Simulated scan of single mutants.
Amino acid sequence: MQMRKVIVGTVLILSATAARAAWAEGMVIAALGDSLTQGYGLVQDEGFVPQLQAWLDARGVDAQVINAGVSGDTTAGGLARVAWTLTPDVDAMIVALGGNDLLRGLDPGVSRANLDGILQAAEQADVEVLLVGMDAPGNYGPEYKQAFDSIYPELADSYGTLYAPSFFEGLQMEGDDPASVRAYMQPDGIHPNAEGVALIVETLGQSVLELIAAAQSS
């Protein structure tokens, strides 16, 4: 009987320790994306993930953001590595892919299929997703733009995921002055500078808070 009490007590102690450890680790969010997520052209602390982490920390949010951004990645690249991105400790995932598909003029149907595969993988792993949209430029024609732009809200609706219209939503042009946005971009005109990332995080961070709440309640 004494030995049984010792065993039971040990099990309870180990269970309590494991629970405290799990709580201490908090929420784990994987940010699956391309160079915008990876932090291209910026020092480490100025990239999207470090700035988002600091934004969450400043608000007392117990969450760890993992940088799963790969510069140059298309939706196909994201699909190829989503399985090993969704490790057992990942509770939620930000999906921000499609910019390089646009730069290469890839078929919107292919991009849709790849993003669909990513969302399927997240659903199977029981991981909540924030899908970040991407707007196609008008130079590919109105049909291409309509087909590409509709991918994100339609997939978000189909899978019941959270949806943010654009990664660049926080960079709103002041009036009709394009220079007001260029001031927050790197010289290539594609990637945001540190100040631009801060504005992006300020806006997108609200959706990340919704993502965390959804993951906690699931």
Rank of each mutant, 00 (worst) to 15 (best):
R4V: 13
K5L: 15
K5F: 14
K5E: 13
K5A: 14
V6G: 00
V6Q: 13
L12D: 07
L14N: 11
S15T: 14
T17P: 00
A18G: 15
R20L: 15
R20S: 15
R20Y: 14
A21R: 08
A22W: 03
E25T: 07
G26R: 03
G26Y: 05
G26N: 04
I29F: 03
A30L: 06
A31W: 01
A31M: 08
L36V: 07
L36Q: 06
T37I: 08
Y40A: 15
G41A: 11
G41H: 11
G41T: 07
G41P: 03
L42P: 07
D45Y: 05
G47E: 02
G47R: 01
A54Q: 13
L56C: 07
D57H: 14
D57P: 05
D62Q: 15
V65N: 02
A68Q: 13
G69I: 07
D73G: 04
T74P: 02
G77T: 01
G78M: 05
G78A: 08
A80N: 13
A80P: 00
R81Q: 07
V82G: 04
A83C: 01
T85E: 06
A92T: 12
A92N: 11
L97T: 00
G98N: 00
N100I: 02
L103W: 05
P108V: 10
R112N: 08
A113H: 04
N114Q: 06
G117A: 12
A121M: 09
V127L: 08
V127T: 10
E128T: 13
V129Q: 06
L130V: 12
Y140Q: 09
Y140M: 11
G141H: 10
K145M: 13
K145D: 02
A156K: 05
D157V: 02
F168C: 01
L171D: 02
E174A: 12
D176M: 09
P178E: 03
A179F: 00
P187D: 10
I190F: 13
P192G: 11
N193A: 12
V201P: 03
T203F: 02
S207P: 00
S207N: 09
V208D: 02
L209V: 12
E210C: 00
L211D: 08
L211P: 04
A214Q: 15
Q216Y: 06
S217G: 01
